[in-house]
C-alpha cells in the first residue's frame, strides 16, 4: 500500500515490452539502463521506482535467457523492497518467487527452494493459508521438489494446492485439472500407477461433465468408451468403427491442453497394462483434438 508505479514508468515498461517482443533487445536494454541511471540520480538507489525498473530490466534479460544477469538485478530489487516496503510485503514475495524461477531455469532447484519457501511464508501470512496465490506458490514449490525427487513433499504441496483451488475457484477451474495432472506425474515417478490413473479419469470425467452434463449410460466420458472397447475386443474380433459408440464424437470433443495431455498420459498407462485398444482410443482422441 501507499506506493503506486508512476505513469512514466508504466509507459516505459510498455515500450520496453514492445521492443523486447520484437527481439529488439539492443534498444530495450539501453533504454532500461538509462532510465535506471536517471531514477537513481533523482531518487537515490533505495527507492521503490528503482526496484520496479530493476524488475523490468530483469524481465528483458530473462527473455534473452540471461538468467545470471537477471538474478543479479532481482537480488538488488529484493534488497530495496525489503528496505522500503518491509520484509513481509507481497512485492517481496513476488520478487522471491521470480528469483526462485530464475534459479529453477538454471537447474539450481536446491538454491531455488528456500526462496520459494520464504515467498510461501509471506503469502500465507499476508493472504491467509488458503488464498489462490498461496496455491500458486505451492505449485512452484512442488515442482522444485519434484525435480529433486522429494516425492513426499511434492504430494503434500500439490494436495494442498488442489484443496485451495477446488474450494476457492471451484472444481471446473483449469487450475484444478492442471494440478491434478501434476500430482499424477508425481505418482507416475513413484510407480503409483493406480493413483495416477484415478486422477486422469477424474480430470476426463469432470471435463466431460462440464461440457455435456452428468455421466449416465448414454453420456460417458471417453475413458469409459475406451475401456468398453477394450472389453468388447475379446468378444467380437473386429469391433468396427468408433461410430458404433453413440456419444463417441461427443466424448472426443472435450478439448483443452490439459485434457489433451491427460488423454496421452492415460493412454500410456493403458498401454503399460496391455490394454492396447483402450490406449489407441485415447491416443486417437488426443490427435483429433490437436
Amino acid at each position: 500500500g501507499g506506493y503506486e508505479v508512476p505513469n512514466r514508468l508504466r509507459t516505459l515498461h510498455n515500450l520496453v515490452i514492445q521492443y523486447a517482443s520484437q527481439g529488439r533487445y539492443e534498444v530495450a536494454v539501453p533504454l532500461c539502463k538509462q532510465a535506471l541511471e536517471d531514477l537513481e540520480k533523482s531518487s537515490g538507489h533505495d527507492h521503490p521506482d528503482v526496484a520496479t525498473m530493476l524488475n523490468i530490466l530483469a524481465l528483458v534479460y530473462r527473455d534473452q535467457n540471461k538468467y545470471k544477469e537477471a538474478t543479479h538485478l532481482l537480488n538488488d530489487a529484493l534488497a530495496i523492497r525489503e528496505k522500503t516496503l518491509g520484509k513481509d510485503h507481497p512485492a517481496v514475495a513476488a520478487t522471491l518467487n521470480n528469483l526462485a524461477v530464475l534459479f529453477g531455469k538454471r537447474g539450481k532447484y536446491k538454491e531455488a527452494e528456500p526462496l520459494c519457501k520464504r515467498a510461501l511464508g509471506i503469502r500465507e501470512k499476508v493472504l491467509g493459508r488458503s488464498h489462490p496465490d498461496v496455491a500458486k506458490q505451492l505449485n512452484n514449490l512442488a515442482l522444485l521438489c519434484l525435480n529433486q525427487a522429494k516425492y513426499d513433499e511434492v504430494e503434500y504441496y500439490y494436495k494442498r494446492a488442489l484443496e485451495i483451488f477446488e474450494s476457492k475457484l471451484g472444481g471446473d477451474d483449469p487450475s484444478v485439472a492442471r494440478t491434478k495432472n501434476n500430482l499424477a506425474t508425481c505418482y507416475l515417478k513413484q510407480g503409483k500407477f493406480k493413483d495416477a490413473e484415478t486422477l486422469y479419469k477424474e480430470i476426463l470425467t469432470r471435463a466431460h461433465e462440464k461440457e455435456f452434463g452428468s455421466v449416465n449410460n448414454d453420456n460417458k466420458p471417453i475413458w469409459m468408451h475406451a475401456e468398453e472397447r477394450e472389453e468388447s475386443k475379446s468378444k467380437q474380433k473386429d469391433s468396427g468403427p468408433y461410430v458404433e459408440y453413440g456419444s463417441w464424437y461427443k466424448a472426443c470433443k472435450v478439448d483443452s491442453p490439459t485434457v489433451n495431455t491427460t488423454l496421452k498420459s492415460l493412454g500410456a498407462l493403458y498401454r503399460r497394462q496391455g490394454k492396447l485398444e483402450a490406449a489407441e482410443t485415447l491416443e486417437e482422441c488426443a490427435t483429433k483434438s490437436r
Binding site: R81, L85, A94, N97, A100, A112, L146, A268
Partner: peptide, 20 residues
Amino acid sequence: DQQGTSRQQQLEWDDSTLTY
C-alpha cells in the same frame, strides 16, 4: 508421454512484481 507431461509443468513467473 510421461516426459510430455512433465515438460508441460513450468515454474510460474509472478508478473505482479511490476505493479508495485
